[in-house]
Design a protein around this nucleic acid. Structure first.
Lengths: 207, 207
DNA sequence: AAAGTGTTGACTAGAGTGGTCAATGAATGT
DNA sequence: ACATTCATTGACCACTCTAGTCAACACTTT
């Protein structure tokens, strides 16, 4: 079915993909309009449904495409020989930011898909996520947790770290446009660095 | 205009309010249907628009109503003579939970309103929030920050604490139904307590 | 020139929307 | 008993927008 889509002009392919990413990330599944997509991609309505059986199939294809592109590139640039948690986290944050800069549309789309509530696709998304969830925690897998203070519950500490970074990101994205992020690259890293320093003081054994 | 609404039967008033809270919190502003509301509240379409000029006015009234009810009751039960941050936070968490239990519909509605994206009301919400934002941070206003370790940046520490609690709540609400929360009251408090203990160890001067 | 493929966009049938208004019912004042 | 006022109804309107279809056209390839 999708072989049709893959065999067409790369330019057109990208035009369609980008139009979809934009429309879906801006409006969510239900409110996204295929009419807008074809207008934006400069193709006819019929052609879109020639490539994809229906809206749902289109969305799920897009999700897989975006997730795959993002995660593979993300993990390629993680140095798994580095066993220190904080250094690993620095890498991950930096990595994610570079990717958000490189693929802003995909980043936005995935952000929105994370909160997608439409009954038409929600279960499919959950299903697809299960397949890769264990991969996501690879970052915290082979870490030298011996550096932690004995009295600290590592699991709780990890949660604090993750939630802090998520909280910072959420606040940042609320206060700034994604396009603006490109310029604030350094600022973000410095902010995160401050938190990481606190975590080191808090959680690591003093040497 | 609203005097009409306030002067009617209290039962009917509540039926309308609850129907609105439910419909809006379940679907967001745009997708919420006034048809569903009147069906649920068991009144006629005309009557709803007799009380409220239009959908937007209805929503904004509801937001003000919900926010007001929630915040006043919330702050009434905060002991402002207690100057220790962690104790204050314990109070706040407990308080919010009791309110979520007492007014689940309002809680859900406010949660959803926080993420409302509809162009029709987004700016109004931001406007209304500005009015009370400074009130929200009263909790952290008159606190004895002298207990903190000297080398800790209090502002960053506060963010970590807030984001951790938010993160925990978000995860909990994702994993559990709101109705289920009633039973897990104690469990939640115990979980939060563990994090608070870590924060005390991390941020407070040892005595 | 025939056959096959890619591509178009006008069109359909449907669902649903917020909001209106002439008509009724109930209650009150005279 | 009548008139006036008010609350309440729900059929109805005009409209928007939707996902998806399909006969027709254009372009290659045979």
């Amino acid at each position: 079915m999708l072989s049709k889509f893959y065999s067409i002009d790369k330019d057109k392919q990208l035009r369609i993909i980008n139009a979809c990413l934009y429309e879906f990330s801006e409006n969510g599944y239900d409110k996204a309009s295929t009419n807008e997509i074809v207008k934006d991609a400069q193709i006819s309505k019929g052609l879109l449904f020639h490539y994809f059986r229906n809206k749902r199939e289109l969305y799920l294809f897009l999700y897989e495409y975006a997730l795959n592109l993002f995660t593979t590139e993300f993990y390629q640039n993680i140095d798994f020989s580095e066993k220190d948690l904080m250094k690993r986290i620095r890498q991950a944050v930096k990595n994610k930011m570079l990717l958000a800069k490189k693929y802003p549309l995909i980043f936005k789309f995935l952000e929105q898909a994370y909160f997608e509530e439409s009954k038409a696709v929600k279960e499919d998304l959950i299903e697809k996520n299960k397949e890769i969830e264990h991969v996501a925690y690879r970052i915290f897998g082979d870490i030298a947790y011996s550096k932690f203070k004995e009295e600290i519950d590592v699991k709780l500490a990890l949660n604090i770290i993750i939630w802090t970074i998520k909280g910072y990101s959420a606040q940042f994205l609320r206060d700034n446009d994604l396009d603006l992020m490109k310029n604030k690259h350094e600022e973000i890293l410095q902010d995160i660095e401050k938190y990481i320093e606190i975590f080191i003081k808090m959680f690591y054994e003093e040497e």
